[in-house]
Design a binder for these strands. Structure first.
Length: 193
DNA sequence: AAACCGATTAACT
DNA sequence: GTTAATCGGTTTC
């Protein structure tokens, strides 16, 4: 079933990042429904987190949606090419978010392959999964309990020992915060086929 | 108004 | 292991 607004608001980014492993990310774009099982996430803890866009309370046009109440999408363009998808969590004015870094294709794999182009259907990175699911910046601020992008519990259980925890990727600029164990992923041997 | 840069990827050696 | 591609957001002048 679809995750409720309360699910997002009652968890901080760290707990949410763990709990979103194994959940399904759905989109319905242009009448095409696609979905994937979330296999990798990262937590961004807001003001005290130097790796977060909201570090030090920074508030700009781009990251404004992080300050809204949880249960909406934060989508932004990275390196001018890649759309990155985050789930905003906690209450209003607590700018925490979970970056979805990888999914395993579940529904609409042909549509995903088409969106990815002639290449193979791989959704193993934060930029490639958004391309496969059709997520673009127009979904920034989108309600995750709505009809265009949402998450569901599809009954996939991931055991604690199958979740690998480590430092986040690509945040070297964040100093010692780059070493925090805020990245969660399903052990490669446990990937659903 | 202009410079700078990034929560990345794919294609290389 | 390295690096070019690429452009909106942010910072700086």
């Amino acid at each position: 079933m679809k995750l409720s607004a309360g699910f997002y608001r009652e968890r901080d980014a760290l707990i949410a990042a763990r709990d979103l492993i194994g959940k399904a990310l759905f989109t319905c774009i242009g009448g095409v429904r696609t979905a994937g099982i979330i296999t990798e996430t990262e937590a961004y803890m807001g003001e005290p987190d130097r790796a977060s866009h909201a570090s030090g309370g920074r508030r700009t046009k781009r990251n404004e949606v992080m300050y809204a109440a949880g249960g909406i999408a934060y989508v932004y363009l990275c390196y001018g090419i890649h759309h990155l998808f985050n789930v905003v969590v906690r209450e209003k004015d607590e700018p925490q978010a979970v970056l979805v870094r990888a999914v395993h294709p579940l529904i609409g794999t042909e549509a995903m392959r088409e969106r990815r182009g002639t290449g193979t259907l791989t959704t193993g990175g934060p930029g490639t999964l958004t391309q496969a699911l059709g997520i673009r910046t127009e979904l920034n601020g989108e309600d995750l309990t709505g009809e265009r992008v949402w998450l569901e519990d599809v009954g996939v259980k991931v055991r604690e020992q199958d979740v690998l925890i480590g430092p986040r990727i690509g945040v070297d600029y964040a100093g010692e915060d780059a070493l925090l164990p805020y990245r969660f992923r399903i052990a490669p041997s446990q990937l659903i086929l």
